[in-house]
């Protein structure tokens, strides 16, 4: 049986307002069924909000987001790695295994898988420890392992390597590339231009709640169209 893909996703004239502040402003964006999308933009430009919107954690004030299926089904086949990882008050093993436990899998099976993914992100030595004791980087690795364990179709990652050292960043990038090769659709944000160059197939550039550019990675880095993107890439301050 072939399960139809939940992709592509289409954002149609979406605005998000909160407490009178416009956060996303009349955005329209179509993402294809394949690819590695990286959302870039200065702090506060609305990247996190855009990802949450697609995942269904954020309701649009206007417009709509449509997947190739209902919203309920869409979220079951996606996973989200938050900018600030949520540490459940449990051991690292139980944190990583949690999504599988929800699915009703037996403890022996979930523990085996948790060990596998912990090893993959490099925190297998921490499995028995309570998650609250983890360092900032280890927390991001845990969140990644917990996201990958369900082998989702779409993976949202909000600045997944911000707290990581160079070696760990490379390791995580390898994991993400592998996942992408195996068919996962990745949509992530980063402020690391090198990382974006290494990973992205396409770039969405946000500025002040608007999409100022959506183009193939090569085009974006070689020949950015908008002034804001050019300035951002140069490291200038955008006003």
């Amino acid at each position: 049986m072939v399960i139809p893909s939940i992709l592509p996703v289409s954002i149609n004239k979406v605005s998000v307002r909160k407490r009178g502040k416009s956060i996303l402003n009349d955005i329209s964006l179509d993402l294809d069924a394949v690819g590695f999308t990286i959302v870039m933009g200065p702090n506060g430009s609305g990247k996190t909000t855009l990802l949450r919107l697609m995942h269904g954690l954020q309701r649009p004030s206007d417009g709509m987001v449509s997947w190739n299926c209902t919203h309920d089904i869409a979220r079951t086949r996606q996973t989200f790695v938050f900018q600030t990882p949520v540490m459940m008050r449990r051991s690292v093993r139980d944190n990583i295994a949690y999504p599988l436990r929800l699915a009703g899998l037996k403890a022996a099976e979930t523990n085996k898988q948790a060990s596998y993914w912990a090893a993959k992100v490099g925190i297998e030595a921490r499995l028995g420890l309570d998650a609250m004791y983890l360092s900032g980087g280890e927390r991001q690795k845990l969140a990644l392992a917990r996201a990958l364990i369900t082998q989702p179709e779409v993976i949202f990652l909000d600045e997944p390597t911000t707290n990581l050292d160079g070696k760990s960043t490379r390791e995580i990038e390898t994991i993400l590339k592998d996942a992408s090769k195996n068919g996962a659709r990745i949509i992530m944000t980063t402020h690391d231009i090198g990382q974006a160059k290494r990973l992205a197939s396409e770039i969405v550039f946000l500025n002040k709640g608007k999409v100022s550019e959506h183009s193939a990675a090569k085009t974006f880095f070689d020949n950015a169209q908008s002034a804001a993107a050019q300035a951002y890439l140069k490291g200038d301050i955008i006003e």
Binding site: H55, L57, R75, Q78, F80, F82, V86, M88, L102
Partner: peptide
């Protein structure tokens, strides 16, 4: 208080 911490994760995981 714990729900405020867990909210996004538990919603995201379709609990």
């Amino acid at each position: 208080d714990l729900w405020a911490d867990y909210h996004d994760l538990l919603i995201s995981l379709n609990t």
